[in-house]
């Protein structure tokens, strides 16, 4: 039995990629060698996603793929076809900071800021899976990424603050449901 040559993308050709990027439908035709990190930065101008180790260890480039935190340096762009991708640029709430961003700003959960987008993305994923994480869970999740500046404690406090804010918000009745996902986020 032979495979269907129609399935093959030759080196010179582009792969069509359709995705939901920060809430908006996006299309790109990418060469096979394109990494998601490069696609986000160079094609879509999402420069809050930065590289560092370029091999999946440090977590600076973390984005959400179908809601899960992943290193965008360790994903080929062709693999996100049909997926939902969220970056730090999708965290804002209109002109205002999103709740996780606000918590990191207020609690000083950053210093040089280079790891911060990745940490905020990790936090977002954690709080979606567990609205009230305990310290051990926070430690485990934040333990995915390197921060060389803060010593982590103020990052973990930021996560706790974000959880409190989100809990308070979800308890508030009468919030305008239309504001979510409405704005152009890329």
């Amino acid at each position: 039995m032979s495979h269907d040559p129609d399935d093959e993308v030759p080196a010179g050709a582009a792969v069509p990629v359709d995705m939901i990027l920060n809430g908006a439908r996006r299309h790109a035709d990418v060469p096979t060698n394109t990494m998601l990190l490069s696609l986000l930065r160079n094609e879509f101008g999402l420069t809050g996603v930065r590289g560092s180790c370029e091999r999946g260890v440090c977590g600076v480039c973390t984005v959400l793929l179908d809601g899960k935190p992943v290193a965008s340096c360790s994903l080929f762009a062709f693999d996100v076809d049909g997926a939902t991708v969220e970056t730090i640029e999708g965290q804002r709430d209109g002109d205002a900071l999103g709740p996780v961003q606000q918590a990191f700003a207020e609690c000083g959960g950053f210093q040089c800021g280079y790891c911060t987008p990745g940490m905020i993305i990790l936090t977002t994923a954690l709080l979606r899976s567990e609205a009230k994480p305990n310290r051990d869970e926070i430690r485990r999740w934040i333990g995915s990424n390197i921060c060389r500046c803060t010593g982590y404690e103020m990052i973990m406090e930021s996560v706790e603050r974000a959880a409190e804010t989100l809990a308070a918000e979800s308890g508030e009745p009468g919030e305008d449901p239309d504001t979510e996902g409405e704005e152009e986020r890329s």
């Binding site: 039995m1 495979h3 093959e8 993308v9 080196a11 792969v15 060469p31 060698n33 990190l37 490069s38």
Partner: peptide, 19 residues
């Protein structure tokens, strides 16, 4: 670096037999 990787032929089989 990642930017230095040249394009490659990409195959995406959909079954083990195909693979």
């Amino acid at each position: 670096t990642q930017a230095a990787l040249p394009p490659f032929d990409l195959l995406r089989p959909t079954s083990l037999a195909d693979a």
